[in-house]
Design a protein around this nucleic acid. Structure first.
Lengths: 111, 111
DNA sequence: ACCTACATATAGACAGCCTACATGTAGACT
DNA sequence: AGTCTACATGTAGGCTGTCTATATGTAGGT
């Protein structure tokens, strides 16, 4: 999966994966892999900064927890984040529809 | 349309619009608008550099023409570009399928 | 002692899309 | 003559988000 293609869709992915239940960063990465059938292998250097950015914006909130001696920062969707996820979903529909319509244009309409 | 969303898909759009027939930059911008139902408004500062990049890579070739006193640089797909377009199309399928599957995951599978 | 999985984090590189600007022709209207 | 819009190409520099690489540390297995 070309990294550049993810640009601008990372937020939707992260919010979506947190819709079901709060998760910590590492678990989010695993969830993305699972739900994508192994296609999505997002590096930690992408996910952790992105989560912080989303928290800064107000779409996520986080708190520390210790499980089995390991520290986790667990993120959960805020109300604002839930609304944003709706927006991201419809933006995704719009996006795929628009790009798709250009890519599917007949190769030789005239001639 | 969020600019970041286009990232990494611009090539596919440009190659696709040139599949039917050779076009110059300005006409490419218009074609993108038409085929997207007005949703795609790509600025010249995006298109012209992108076309040059694609030519440098070898997916496009270009030549100057003068029409009605105005100079145009007309771009056409090379063989290599045609192959690349096929690749872009299947990459797009893969991409939408993967992201879509994550975004469509049930909001509450368990519980 | 070593390795792997778990877990978070940051610095800096990289790339591509954008805004803003520069330049010029043609044709219509005043 | 002057002004405006559409046509037409191009570049410089900014922005921003993803990536690579690296650092740090715990737990558990061999």
């Amino acid at each position: 999966m070309n990294p550049d293609a993810l640009r601008g869709h990372m937020d939707a992915l992260l919010l979506s994966v947190l819709e079901r239940e709060p998760l910590h960063g590492y678990a989010i990465i695993e969830a993305l892999q699972e739900r994508s059938g192994g296609a999505l292998n997002v590096p930690t250097g992408t996910v952790y900064p992105a989560l912080r950015r989303l928290e800064r914006i107000g779409y996520l909130s986080s708190e520390w927890a210790t499980v089995g001696g390991r520290k986790r920062r667990t993120y959960r969707l805020t109300e604002s984040g839930r609304k944003q996820l709706q927006g991201e979903r419809s933006a995704w529909q719009e996006f795929t529809s628009v790009i798709g319509s250009v890519l599917r244009s007949e190769a030789s309409a005239v001639r």
